[in-house]
Design a protein around this nucleic acid. Structure first.
Lengths: 173, 173
DNA sequence: TGCTAAGATTTCGACATCGAAATATTCGAA
DNA sequence: TTCGAATATTTCGATGTCGAAATCTTAGCA
């Protein structure tokens, strides 16, 4: 990477500016510090993932499908649920699955219990792709957290898990 | 919202499954707990932002431009930098700015110091949109963190800020 | 000055995604 | 059983995004 181009800010400066601006616009500071940090970090990770996925010849959207299927405990999923989970329209998922099926990453089969539904699952090749991507991503992710001790990581994870467990109550409102 | 459809998991269960699967595939647990939590949370926020932006008649990409310009300390930015920051091709930014200019959210002007460049900045209407969006988003964001005490939020923010400050060193590798 | 290489933006053709309509199946009630 | 509403998926036309090429300006150097 070339040295930051003139005018561009470091991630840290950008974060500080953003929090200050959001607070000035009417946001709570204790909220904006956390939320802005989470979003900044996620966006940065996203950039790295995108680069790594190019090596595996996967688009970001296709990766989303692979990851959903892999983390669904091996159980097949329907196109609609994949679309929801990927934040994409159901009609887009049709095309995406067409391409992935043709490439041999996923397999479509009719649901024996409900002929309206289609079930999608990873092929062996799909599982291999998943494993390769996880192990490659783990390198960058590990570097990202290099500044934290083991204890601090656990603390951070515990706090985030409290937030995540609260999401479900929020849904039903 | 209707009760979760059969087969779907709660955010919490999804998170647990995901971490377990990533670890089984070769990721470090202390890394995956944090990273997966950050990404899960960010994706959930993204869904809410998208819904809220519909009210303001803004696409997610357009919001990205507004937010970048607002948090750049009021200084105008070039289309290329906006494209980088939005994770989008420069050519797409051209169209996006066309639409936003026509609508009166941003203003384009030639850079007096370099006629190759174009400078983009928010109009008064753009600033109003920004403020409205921030205040509306703050409601959901605040609810999201409702499970944490003020002290825990500060702790969480501090830990995340350590990670963010480390991003800049990582860049230059 | 004149020439070439590099940089910024826009134009262009190909492809991905969206929302709405079309198709097919299931479920519940008459 | 039969009808109509609800659900799941796919098809279709319009729009957004991508990467490469074209256009224009700047910067460096003889």
């Amino acid at each position: 990477m070339p040295p930051r181009s003139e005018g561009a800010q470091s991630a840290q400066e950008q974060y500080r500016e953003a929090v200050a601006t959001y607070v000035a616009a009417g946001g709570d500071e204790s909220v904006q510090r956390v939320i802005t940090a989470v979003n900044s970090l996620s966006r940065k990770l996203e950039q790295w993932y995108t680069r790594q996925l190019i090596d595996l010849d996967l688009s970001h959207g296709e990766w989303s499908v692979v990851a959903q299927l892999a983390t669904a405990d091996g159980k097949p999923m329907t196109p609609s649920r994949l679309a929801d989970a990927s934040n994409v329209a159901a009609s887009s998922m049709t095309h995406r699955l067409d391409r992935m099926t043709e490439r041999g990453v996923v397999r479509r089969s009719p649901d024996p219990e409900n002929r309206t539904r289609v079930l999608v699952e990873l092929t062996d090749q799909g599982w291999e792709l998943f494993g390769a991507a996880v192990r490659e991503a783990n390198v960058v992710e590990s570097d990202t957290l290099a500044g934290l001790t083991r204890k601090e990581r656990d603390q951070l994870a515990a706090l985030l898990e409290v937030v995540i467990s609260g999401l479900d109550d929020l849904e039903t409102s």
